[in-house]
């Protein structure tokens, strides 16, 4: 494995009952790369992120993160299922933004952003608050620090969600359909934040989305997922203008020209 590979799915299979969501998946992401995953619903694209975030265990194969197996630990030459301690070690490198935001409704915006840095990373309240203020500034919500999440619009909540994940200083950010639950007029503000993140930081980003224009603008690479595997991948211009795979063509046609 070359040094600049940060995420590596090596023949990963994931089942829900009899249904194979991921089928023998091979997938690599380089350090700093921005990869967008597109595809029909049920194709397993969100599962890729959930497996990486250690929310869903895998059935077969190995996932590597920064060279170390994610769901396994090395014992001698063997790979054994990972302990919670190992998973916690690995999770330090990951941050996730959820479709439904999943903010903590009983905490103010400020507490949402400082609780984990204080409790998990051991920052002082003061340090954590300074970090949180910078992030709130970046997502354009400096004036909302004392509000509770249910008092914010969906777009604002999602920007808090992004700031909350960034507060842990992850190497890889996972975005699971971050704008799918938003009213159309609120999508833009969230995309702007993600866009700026893609430009300004050497963060590795994995994004599952239905916003095709956006995917085209920010990605280094687009992967088309169907039935638990990557059917086609390549630079966005190639995927969106001259897809080679027939399923990709059908999917893009259906998404980009819904009335045709």
């Amino acid at each position: 494995m070359s040094d600049d590979t940060l995420v590596h799915f090596d023949k990963v299979t994931k089942r829900f009952g009899d249904f194979e969501v991921l089928k023998n998946l091979d997938f690599k992401v380089k350090r700093g790369e921005k990869v967008t995953i597109i595809g029909p619903s049920g194709s397993g694209k969100s599962t890729v992120l959930r497996v990486l975030m250690t929310l869903e265990p895998i059935n077969e194969g190995v996932v590597y993160l920064d060279g170390d197996p994610l769901w396994h630990e090395k014992r001698g030459h063997e790979l054994v299922p990972a302990s919670e301690a190992h998973l916690r070690q690995m999770r330090k490198k990951l941050g996730m933004v959820f479709q439904q935001f999943n903010l903590f409704p009983h905490m103010t915006v400020m507490r949402n952003l400082t609780e984990a840095p204080v409790r998990v990373l051991g920052l002082s309240r003061k340090e954590a608050q300074e970090r949180a203020r910078e992030l709130l500034d970046m997502v354009g919500l400096s004036d909302q620090a004392d509000k509770f999440p249910p008092q914010l619009s969906g777009g604002q909540q999602q920007r808090v969600g992004i700031a909350r994940a960034l507060a842990m200083r992850p190497q890889v950010m996972l975005f699971d359909e971050p704008t799918s639950a938003l009213d159309p007029e609120l999508v833009g503000d969230v995309l702007k934040v993600i866009h700026r993140l893609a430009e300004e930081h050497d963060l590795t980003m994995l994004l599952v989305t239905h916003e095709m224009d956006f995917a085209r603008r920010i990605s280094d690479r687009v992967c088309f997922f169907d039935q638990g595997a990557i059917r086609e991948e390549g630079p966005p211009d190639q995927i969106f203008t001259e897809p080679k795979n027939q399923r990709t063509q059908e999917f893009l046609h259906a998404v980009l020209h819904p009335e045709a």
């Binding site: 975030m53 999943n102 984990a116 994940a165």
Partner: peptide
């Protein structure tokens, strides 16, 4: 989803 968010924040 609250537990998942907690997990994602380690």
């Amino acid at each position: 989803s609250q537990y998942e968010a907690s997990r994602a924040l380690n």
